[in-house]
């Protein structure tokens, strides 16, 4: 088959037990999914892949089921991206993938291989200087418990880079996928308005 290799995915170690793949049909929308028992694999399949995160390449051997979020947190120790729902609902896991904000909990690590991932840990400069968005969040007290904050900041940077930070209303709409249960929302909007002009000419997508 001609489906491999693609950038980032180095190869697959094997791994299916006998009878692992059934001949039962179908697809996506029509899959009667849960109706059929799925076979138990005797061994866990492992994907060798390279994740480029904050400018560094990491070679990992992962179960294909591992999400980008779990790879960052559990394999690379980058716990800035948070797990708040693991279902793409809260936004706490937001990272930039090739400069665009995405939910790392709904992104397979394998799918992210070959792309450039930026996490909250990749924002500050090497001498410890804060990104303007980080500084703005501090200045405006744009968080309380802080748990959603890395996701908010990554989303805020994405929102500015996407050109969705034109007006406060636009910011509010663009940031509505990042739940903040402490409800720091007005301060988050103020922070984005402060950081936006300081971000001109600066684009975060090194991965």
């Amino acid at each position: 088959m001609t489906t491999q290799p693609t950038p980032g995915v180095v190869g697959r170690r094997s791994l299916l037990g006998s009878g692992a793949v059934s001949a039962a049909a179908p697809l996506l929308a029509v899959a009667p999914a849960a109706a059929q028992p799925t076979p138990i694999l005797k061994e866990t399949a492992v994907l060798d892949l390279v994740l480029r995160v904050n400018g560094q390449e990491h070679r990992l051997a992962l179960d294909p089921r591992v999400t980008l979020l779990d790879a960052l947190r559990e394999e690379l120790g980058l716990t800035g991206a948070k797990k708040g729902c693991d279902q793409g609902q809260c936004g706490a896991c937001t990272v930039l993938l090739d400069g665009r904000r995405v939910l790392s909990c709904l992104t397979l690590a394998a799918r992210a291989a070959g792309g450039a991932v930026t996490t909250i840990e990749g924002l500050a400069t090497e001498d410890g200087g804060l990104h303007p968005m980080q500084q703005a969040f501090l200045d405006h007290d744009a968080f309380q418990c802080g748990y959603c904050t890395p996701g908010q900041i990554m989303s805020a940077i994405g929102c500015v880079q996407e050109g969705h930070a034109g007006t406060p209303d636009e910011i509010r709409e663009a940031m509505s996928g990042n739940l903040c249960r402490c409800a720091a929302y007005p301060n988050i909007v103020a922070a984005i308005e402060q950081a936006k002009p300081q971000m001109a000419g600066r684009r975060t997508e090194r991965g």
């Binding site: 980058l78 716990t79 800035g80 991206a81 996490t119 909250i120 840990e121 924002l123 500050a124 804060l130 980080q134 500084q135 969040f137 501090l138 007290d141 968080f143 802080g146 904050t149 890395p150 900041i153």
Partner: peptide, 10 residues
């Protein structure tokens, strides 16, 4: 604790 929270270090 703000710096730790905005840098993901917390």
């Amino acid at each position: 604790d703000g710096r730790a929270k905005v840098t993901g270090a917390a």
